[in-house]
Design a binder for these strands. Structure first.
Length: 568
RNA sequence: CGGGCUGUGGCGCAGUUUGGUAGCGCGCUACCUUGGGGUGGUAGAGGUCGCGGGUUCGAGUCCCGCCAGUCCGACCA
């Protein structure tokens, strides 16, 4: 491709709002353009890079036995309603209505659509296990998109779905996809950790996330360095600290004016935050849920939700008031609220004694509170968030918290969707059974951001061979006829497979743009290189440079452009 | 849902306090210059100053309303 006609423009200054390296570089290297929050366009070079990644993922899925299909991006909302996800609290699902009033929704994942596709055509047992995949646009109406391509509203995702006769089959398909995804991350040179996860809005059990460590990431994983235990923040467990609180004592009220915060209270009473009982209120369909954790803990809302069931929502201050709670001084001892109340105690609370908690009276707390003696609860469970340094649930050694970016997610769905949407298959025993499904998603757009996040230096992108839009950047310096002739000779038959900087700009500009774009190999043709008998070859990764004699150029280009001469 | 900040050529910004012909740098076009690390110069093109209303002889600037973007908080009782 001749650069003088390529639709491409780099930028000399950093965009004002980019804090992520990948965001900054994608914009400066002219690969993306923002249209509105979380919605971007790609330029030719940006699209080529994305397509390389898309093709690579497709290759691995084909290897795993997947067949590619295309599902609608605009889907009938009724499909969502029938699967049971339309009625749930799914604010990311973008709904719209056409002019006749038909309710539609934009694809957010494709469990429903894929199940429907298979159901409509029907499937024979002989076709199982069936693995179907598509690469398609997804739209999620995120509250806060951010970081360039890191968290988008509209994005490209490769999703796949497996269909098996029984649970055993599903587990085998799941294992096959897990390997396929591992290969993808290996080929893109991304170090990714497999993490046990909560299944969230997908439903099902035994989900696995692929998380890449990244300081600017938005997920957190909990990992034990001693035994290898790893879990998502939402699913992480810890072994409880026993014997918190000040020991058994008699119950006594203490006056604590203005101490409505844990930190303030701890200072006022001269105790540890862990000696205070923290009470957090939620609403579950009209029922008040009181979650009790020790004062230095955070309630793990996903964990609480898993224990309580249904969907929880934090209670606003006015609402809490309305139900008879004394905001700032609420506690479980002799608590009376309007309506139903469920008290859930964290397992650490159960084992503590001599705690401080709110007295349900403005300006007063209670000291010497002992769980079990002074108040009771309906459920005791692990509902607190794990913190740095907590004891590993497997081996007891300290746990660490790490920020990560989620790149892929695979689920064992079971028969949830096939049952609700009526997808059955007849086995050899002549009985119709719902199919066992798995769901697998990998974010192509986000993968593009992750590759740059992981592969760049202070001058620009450093593409890994498998994702580079072109393998070779040919720079022509000067306009002497000798140089021009050599350039044309070099570009020769490979013109379409390399980027050829034939612009009339100075050498410095070309070098800077080449470094910024970061193609794996740079070939320079100039009067100087000519004097040394050929062209200069430079590797972007480490700057290693050598001269290639004129007559060796065709062979070298063949090596670089047809495969195995990557960066490694 | 709340708070802060910001909306001015493609990008980065000044101008708003004190109302008076819309500016700078980068990028873009043409020509010259330079030609191994963003060369120097000359001449140009490009703007509903986020949107609507108001005050005024006159509004990017003052007033009211709205919208968008962005950052922080979201809840610990």
């Amino acid at each position: 491709m001749r650069q003088s006609v390529l639709f491409w423009q780099t930028q000399r200054t950093d965009p004002a709002d980019a804090e992520l390296a990948s965001h900054r570089l994608l914009v400066r290297a002219g690969l993306i353009q923002r249209f509105t929050s979380g919605i971007y366009g790609l330029t030719p070079l940006g699209l080529m890079a994305q397509q390389r990644i898309e093709d690579l993922v497709r290759e691995e899925l084909t290897q795993a036995g997947a067949q590619e299909v295309r599902l609608p991006f605009v889907q009938p909302f009724d499909l969502w309603r029938r699967s049971g996800r339309g009625a749930e609290d799914l604010p990311e699902l973008m709904r719209l209505r056409d002019r006749r009033g038909e309710e539609l929704a934009l694809a957010l994942t494709a469990e429903e659509a894929m199940t429907e596709l298979v159901r409509r055509q029907g499937v024979h047992a002989s076709q199982l296990p069936l693995l179907l995949t598509q690469t398609g646009l997804k739209f999620r109406d995120e509250l806060r998109p951010r970081g360039g391509l890191m968290r988008l509203r509209e994005f490209l995702m490769q999703d796949a779905y497996s269909f098996d006769l029984d649970e055993q089959g599903m587990t085998e398909s799941f294992a096959r996809m897990r390997l396929a995804y591992r290969r993808v991350f290996e080929r893109l040179d991304l170090d990714v950790r497999e993490v046990a996860a909560a299944s969230g809005m997908m439903g099902g059990a035994g989900a696995l996330e692929f998380q890449m460590p990244l300081a600017a990431g938005e997920d957190e994983i909990i990992a034990c360095r001693a035994c290898g235990y790893v879990a998502n923040r939402e699913a992480a467990r810890r072994s409880p600290r026993g014997g918190m609180g000040k020991g058994v004592a008699s119950l006594s009220p203490v006056e604590t004016p203005g101490a409505t915060q844990i930190a303030t209270l701890a200072t006022a009473l001269g105790c540890r935050e862990a000696d205070i009982l923290k009470a957090v209120f939620y609403d579950k369909a009209g029922t008040t849920v009181l979650a009790l954790v020790l004062g230095d803990r955070q309630v793990g809302e996903e964990k609480l939700q898993a224990v309580v069931g249904g969907s929880l929502r934090p209670l606003a201050a006015e609402e809490a008031h309305g139900r008879g709670l004394v905001v700032g001084y609420a506690g479980p001892v002799a608590l009376e609220v309007t309506g139903t109340l469920i008290i859930v105690a964290d397992m650490e609370v159960e084992q503590a004694s001599g705690l401080v908690c709110g007295a349900n009276r403005e300006g007063w707390h209670l000291a010497g509170v002992t769980p079990g003696r002074d108040f009771s609860w309906q459920m005791a469970a692990d509902i607190a968030q794990v913190a740095e340094g907590d004891a590993c649930p497997e081996c007891g050694m300290p746990l660490g918290v790490e920020r990560t970016l989620e790149l892929g997610h695979i689920f064992r769905l079971g028969t949830r969707y096939s049952e609700r949407l009526g997808l059955h298959c007849q086995g050899s025993d002549n009985v119709l059974r719902p199919l066992w499904m798995g769901s697998y998603g990998i974010g192509i757009s986000r993968l593009l951001a992750a590759v740059i996040e992981r592969h760049h230096d202070d001058r620009g992108i450093v593409w890994p061979a498998e994702a580079a839009p072109y393998a070779v950047h040919l720079l022509v310096l000067g306009e002497d006829s000798d140089v021009t002739t050599l350039a044309q000779e070099v570009a020769g038959a490979w013109q379409d497979r390399l980027l050829w900087d034939d612009r009339a700009v100075t050498a410095g500009v070309k070098f800077h743009d080449a470094d910024l774009l970061g193609l794996p190999w740079r070939l320079t043709v100039s009067r100087r290189s000519l004097a040394q008998g050929g062209v200069e070859l430079r590797r972007r990764l480490d700057g290693q440079t050598r001269m290639v004699r004129r007559e060796e150029v065709p062979q070298m280009l063949r090596d670089l452009l047809t495969g195995d001469a990557g960066q490694g």
